[in-house]
């Protein structure tokens, strides 16, 4: 067992996959030099520039070339430097990678992994902070995971590389160096689409993912100590597909659901979770299905005061829990 940060876990997942299977390559901006977050540190020395490919600054080409290479025996891990910069590649992801299998009636498939550091809370301003998971979770044919722990990052990234479909791996960048976690020495994967119970509870189900999972655990601890409220925290980890069964099972037990997400309130992925609970879990509910998210302003303004004001945090989550608990 070794203690690793999430960033080291991401590095190790790719490194081990490239060792395991010579078809795996990484490609993206600055990856040759190690990448802006150092996720590919030492890759050129180990694997050479043909398997750790510095691309021109052109996101549609990064994804589009990865798609083409995946049709001809290569398993590319494409890195989009910040999720905010995936928008120029939106067409390649949505029109091409996602639809290739369906439109060819299952005769072509597109086994690419697209990594994107995402999320706010790091003074990244409006273009290094966005949550993009709702855009891609909306699209049949793509799989989307949101990771925020070293263990999940490594296991889900490995699953993405081995998946025959295009998988978008959203790595919350505020979690990159948040803490160290002991990881198994042996190879392991985590299945895409399976949520994890982070804290057991009986009064409220709190469904979340990404950095909000860490904030939610703090809030759950606070209300447990101060109010005696027992909150069950579920980390979705995957938003497409997502673990509806696990969520509904929890709501059945607690009767109350709070969905916490970092993205804008309107149309964020948590809205889908809330709607599903309202429709399929109606008989279980003893209070309103509640959402806590960022307000509908561009995420995130640069000044710390502005950014802190809009993002959900443990205090805001604590308040939301107390309100829901009072029903």
């Amino acid at each position: 067992m070794a203690e690793k940060t999430m960033l080291e876990a991401v590095h190790d997942a790719m490194f081990e996959e490239m060792k395991r299977d010579e078809r795996v390559i990484v490609m993206g901006e600055d990856v040759g030099e190690g990448g802006v977050f150092r996720a590919t540190e030492g890759f050129v020395a180990e694997f050479g520039p043909n398997r750790c490919v510095d691309t021109p600054l052109a996101e549609a080409a990064i994804v589009g070339v990865a798609i083409g290479a995946s049709l001809n025996g290569i398993l590319p891990i494409a890195e989009i430097q910040f999720a905010d910069f995936s928008h120029p590649a939106f067409d390649q992801l949505v029109s091409e990678a996602a639809r290739l299998y369906y439109r060819s009636n299952g005769t072509w498939n597109c086994p690419i992994t697209v990594r994107m550091p995402y999320g706010a809370g790091i003074h990244g301003g409006p273009y290094h902070s966005q949550s993009v998971e709702a855009f891609y979770a909306h699209v049949p044919g793509l799989k989307v995971v949101c990771v925020a722990t070293p263990h999940d990052a490594k296991g889900l990234l490995k699953s993405a590389v081995r998946d025959p479909n295009p998988v978008i791996v959203l790595e919350h960048k505020k979690a990159y160096r948040l803490y160290r976690q002991e990881l198994p020495d042996e190879d392991y994967t985590i299945p895409i689409g399976v949520a994890e119970l982070k804290r057991e509870g009986s009064d409220i189900s709190l469904i979340t993912y990404g950095m909000m999972m860490h904030h939610s655990l703090k809030a759950a601890e606070t209300v447990h100590e101060q109010d005696g409220v027992s909150v069950e925290v579920i980390d979705l980890r995957s938003v497409s597909p997502w673990d509806k069964a696990r969520v509904l099972e929890s709501v059945k037990k607690t009767g109350k659901a709070l969905v916490v997400y970092e993205d804008n309130f309107t149309g964020g992925f948590g809205a889908e979770v809330a709607a599903t609970i309202a429709q399929d879990g109606f008989d279980y509910l003893d209070g309103p299905v509640t959402r806590l998210a960022s307000p509908d302003v561009p995420i995130a303004p640069f000044a710390g005061e502005l950014e802190d004001f809009i993002l959900p945090n443990p205090e805001k989550i604590t308040t939301a829990i107390r309100k829901l608990a009072s029903y």
Binding site: I25, V63, G64, V65, G68, A69, N72, I74
Partner: peptide
């Protein structure tokens, strides 16, 4: 959109 795919196919052949 097929132009980047062609480049990827060709790049893979090279690799």
């Amino acid at each position: 959109t097929q132009l980047p795919h062609a480049v990827g196919v060709a790049f893979a052949a090279q690799l």
